[in-house]
Computed example of a mutant assay.
Amino acid sequence: MVVKAELEKLGFNPISVELGTVSIKENISADDKIRISEQLKSFGFELLEDKKTQIAEQIKTSIIDLVHYSKEPLKINLSAYLSVQINLEYPQLSAVFSEIENQTIEKYFIAQKIEKAKEMLTYGELTLSEIAYQLNYSSVAHLSAQFKKVCGLTPSAYKTQTSDKRKTLDEI
């Protein structure tokens, strides 16, 4: 909503504004790009024109959508899912992501799953077994091991602590 409003303030007519993508009716000049970029930076957004950076952001957006907003348990092959979502072969996606983000897609995916597990633990509505199932872990032990590796705490220890150690999605 912020991006759409700011583009309209600058005199552009956005056709669609979705997470990570904007379509505008008008042709954009180099000066227009600078104006848009400066305006969006004041709200913490940036223009991504480099193709590799765009692909890395598409991967991150797809993983965030899958982990945080999907209503179904994560019973999907990540490489196949990303290849379909982005319409590129997984080896190419993996190479680009590792180059741009300095981490593998798998590590990013695990970090997102652990953040989702933290959220579920914080709300306290599900058991650890149910969380492991929702996040497609083979067992509670597997979830606990990854959780401890990423956070330095077991899920139970995390749940009992009072301070919130969760990261925002853009910090992961």
Rank of each mutant, 00 (worst) to 15 (best):
L82H: 01
N13C: 04
G44D: 04
I64L: 10
E57H: 14
S42M: 10
S79W: 01
L88C: 02
L78Q: 04
V67Y: 06
V17E: 05
V17L: 03
I63R: 00
T21A: 08
N13G: 03
E46I: 14
E18H: 11
L74H: 03
I64G: 06
V17R: 00
L19N: 13
Q39D: 06
Q58M: 11
K71I: 12
F45R: 06
S42H: 03
V84N: 11
E18L: 10
I76P: 03
S94Y: 07
K75S: 11
Y90I: 07
L78P: 02
I36D: 00
E46M: 14
K60T: 04
N13V: 08
N13Q: 12
F12T: 03
V22C: 07
Y90K: 05
I86Q: 02
G20F: 04
P91I: 13
S42I: 02
I36S: 05
I64Y: 10
S42V: 07
K60V: 02
K71A: 11
P14I: 08
K51F: 10
S16Q: 14
I63N: 01
E38A: 13
E49A: 05
S29V: 08
G11I: 05
Y69I: 10
S37G: 14
T21L: 11
L82Y: 06
L10R: 07
S16M: 11
I59F: 01
L88V: 10
L66Q: 07
K60L: 02
V22I: 09
K51P: 05
Q92T: 15
A80Y: 04
D50R: 04
K33E: 15
I24K: 01
I63A: 04
K60D: 00
D65W: 10
K52C: 03
E89H: 12
P14Q: 09
E26R: 08
I76Y: 09
I24E: 00
S23L: 14
S23P: 00
K60R: 10
I76C: 05
D65E: 15
K33A: 15
A56N: 02
I59S: 01
I55Q: 00
S23A: 12
K9N: 13
G20M: 07
P91A: 11
E38F: 10
D32W: 07
G11Y: 03
Q58T: 03
T61H: 01
I28T: 08
S83F: 00
V17D: 01
K25Q: 14
N27V: 12
N13F: 08
L82C: 06
I24G: 00
A80H: 08
